[in-house]
Every structure is written in C-alpha cells, then in structure tokens.
Design a binder for these strands. Structure first.
Lengths: 222, 222
DNA sequence: ACGGATGGATTGACCGATCAGTCTATGGCG
DNA sequence: CGCCATAGACTGATCGGTCAATCCATCCGT
C-alpha cells in the first residue's frame, strides 16, 4: 500500500500523543481550559477519551503538557537571539536592539510556525491574566530565564535605571505582548480595518517603537 | 427588631439580584465563565439556583448582566475626566496629561471601590484576551466611546501622528492596563517583592511614564 | 523462517457526580 | 385575594475518570 507505511509502536505512540496535544492546544486556545471537555479533545484527535487519560493521567496533566511542549524552544530562541545581539552590538547596544532581540523570536515562531504555534501563543496570552486558582497547578516559570536575561541586558544599556523601574517596564511590555498574541481582532474593529491584529511584523515594529522610547529617562516630552 | 426593617418586595428583589451579581462577579473573576456553575453562584448568594434563572434567564445572561453593571460608570467617568482635563489644560495639553486623564478613573474605581469593583476589573482583564467564540455573545463595545475620545485627544496633541499609529498605541496601552488589572502577582514574584501588582498608584505612574515617552515621534533614543 | 507469547496501544462500556435549566408548590407582601 | 419572589424536587445531558477487554507490533524459542 503506497504512502501508508507500517507504523512501529513508538511511532504510533508519538503520533497519537501529538494529535492529542494539537487538538487540546487548539481547543484550549479557542475556549479556555474549562470550556473544553476531554471528550471534545478526544473526538478532535480521533482517539478515545481513555487514551487521553492513559497518556496524560488527567485533564490538568494534559493542559500542563500542552504548555510545556513549546516552552523550552521559545525560551532558548530568546536566549540565543539576545546572546547573538550582544555579540554583534558589543558596547553599542541600544534599548531598541535589546527589545527587538527579545521580542522577535516568539513572534517569528508564531508567524513562521504552523497553527500549533499560533494556538500556543494564544494560550499563553490567556493564562497570563489568570491567577493560579483559576488553573490546575500550572507552572508559569518556564520563561523566567529569558526574562531575567532580558532585564539584565536592559540594565546594561540603562545603568541609571532602577531595578524596580526595569521590572515595571517588563510588566507593561509583557501585557502589551500578550494582548497582541491573543489576536482578538478588537483593534481591527476599533480602527476600522486600519490595523490588523494578525500582522505580527507591524506589531513588533510598533511595540519596539513605543517601548524603546518608554525606557528613556529624563524629561517628559511636551 | 432593630436594624432589620421590614423589606418590601421590590427591596427584596433588588437585594437578591445584587447578591447574585456580587457572587457571580467574584466567582467569574476568580475561575472564569466556564469554571463556575450556577449552583456555585446560587450557593454563594444564598439563593436557589432557580432564582438565578428567574432573574437572568440563563448563565450567559447573568454573565452579560455582570459585565454591564459597571460599564456605564467606567465609561462616563473616563469621559468626564478627559473633558475636565481638556478644559483645565486648554491649549497646553500634553500626552502625559491625556494619558493620566484616561487611565486614572478606572484605577481609582478599583482602588476606592470595594471588592466588587476590583473583581470587575479582573473580569474585564480576562475577557480582553478572549475571542468571541470563547464567550457567550458578549458585547465588548461598552467602552468604545471613551476610547474614541481618548484617541481623538491624542490626535490633537500629536497632529503629526498617523491614525494607524494612534490605534497601535492604544492597543499596546490597553494590553499593559489589563495585565495590571488582572493582579496575577507574577511581577511580585519576578521582582522578588520589589513590585506589587496591587499597587495601583504606582502602576498608573509607571504606565504614564512609559507610554508618554512612547508616543514621542522622531529619533529613537540611544 | 515461523508461530505462539508478551506487553504496550487503544477501545467501548460504564461509573458517580455535576451540569444548566424546568416545573410546581407555597409563603408573604400589597 | 392576587401576585410575585422564592424554594425544592427533578430532568436529560454531559462531565472527568476507570476498567476490563481487544488490538497489534515485537520478540523469542524452535
């Protein structure tokens, strides 16, 4: 039979797990953790509900697995991007450059990756505004290393800025970013189509533009 | 019996509705729409589940009612605040002033209001990153008038800025704001207690500081 | 090269609990 | 008395999760 090779057990295992994760990711992103049932996910993945529990033990375990799947890649790409920038810029580092190095990887992943990566970003956006008791014991520390590196680089470029200001700066930045990842289409409607919430290239540009000036210390402009 | 006056039917009605709305608001804010059952809400409000349906027809209807309850007040306070600023500043309006006039009312409401208002802000933060199919036909246009007024005032202060840039500016700003309203405590943990996510006074200051510079047009700083 | 035996992958049937929502009854205010 | 606010009992559907049975790729003894 051409095309349909016989699959080994480990292949079957990986494929099924990936299908479950893909379906879960898409559905969780669309309707939230409690808006989706295990049955929904199993049906979308064309698998029995028991198999979901077989692999991921519980609905919460599945959710955690979804969140963990791409986290290391995002974190690593960010670290690499910032390290590469630091190497190329040397002592000429700018806030704009650091911002761009930190921002681009995740947005590039969302743009060049498939639906899976886009759904993942949407999911991150959703949990970013949730407190822990709205979620099953979810670990939100996966991105912390890159965040700390980001703040350290900002401190290098702006030695006069206080640690507190840098954290607030990050807080505001990450709010803006996650809002963009959510792709709600609200800015599209508000602007009458002038802005498109899925235009990630433009979003990175505008984010860099606004926040690069935002860390400027000194006189408030006119 | 001192203190417990005899209640009329309309008083009972209003009190019960308010109790249901309060409980729903708190629970929805804590666990999201699908994370809460009508039974939970009824129990918290100390009423029967059928009473919830009697007043609000459905769970979705209740959710909509919760969202609508404070919306006009927030919107109106924003409009008043911006109008007052425009009157006092005359031709001396600044980006910083407009920002502060737009931002302060909602944060003041959250600070000076009770738990209800704080829960309301948390709820707004949550739905701001949700697409329409994750929600029961919820109307998110309640704040549009104040938003349009805000953008118009920005345009007055920055006539050279493009309409598109102003909308992107608003997009980034509202992301930062809703992140703050969510009070997830994540920045507290990241900063090692240096920043407190419920310190709304500081948040307004930092937001104004960052975004006032952000709309500056011209050369990117070092 | 072959034919059980083994064990992981997968399923269908089913569990008690809980869901949103309905129906009917009733008690007390106007 | 009449009506509205409220409660209790209940419905069919669906929830997350379990269990024993089945499927099938792989391995081993011959």
């Amino acid at each position: 039979m051409p095309g349909t090779r016989r699959r080994s057990n480990t292949e079957r295992r990986d494929e099924s797990q990936a299908r479950i994760l893909d379906s879960a990711e898409a559905l969780f992103a669309a309707r939230g953790f409690n808006g989706v049932s295990v049955k929904d996910i199993a049906k979308a993945a064309q698998v029995d509900t028991s198999l979901v529990h077989y692999y991921f033990a519980s609905k919460a375990g599945l959710f955690t697995a979804v969140l963990r799947r791409h986290a290391p890649r995002v974190n690593q790409t960010r670290m690499d991007s910032m390290a590469a920038y630091a190497r190329s810029a040397g002592t000429q580092m700018t806030v704009e450059g650091v911002l761009r190095a930190y921002l681009e990887p995740a947005f590039r992943l969302a743009r060049e990756g498939g639906e899976s990566e886009q759904n993942y970003m949407t999911l991150i956006a959703q949990i970013s505004v949730l407190t822990s008791d709205a979620l099953p014991g979810v670990d939100t520390t996966a991105f912390d290393p890159a965040i700390e590196a980001f703040i350290s680089m900002l401190q290098q470029v702006r030695p006069e800025a206080s640690r507190e200001d840098l954290y607030w700066f990050y807080h505001l930045l990450t709010g803006a970013i996650t809002q963009s990842w959510a792709r709600t289409g609200r800015i599209d409607r508000l602007s009458g189509g002038l802005c498109r919430s899925d235009d990630f290239d433009t979003i990175v540009e505008k984010t860099v533009a606004v926040f690069a000036h935002g860390l400027t210390v000194g006189e408030t402009p006119r």
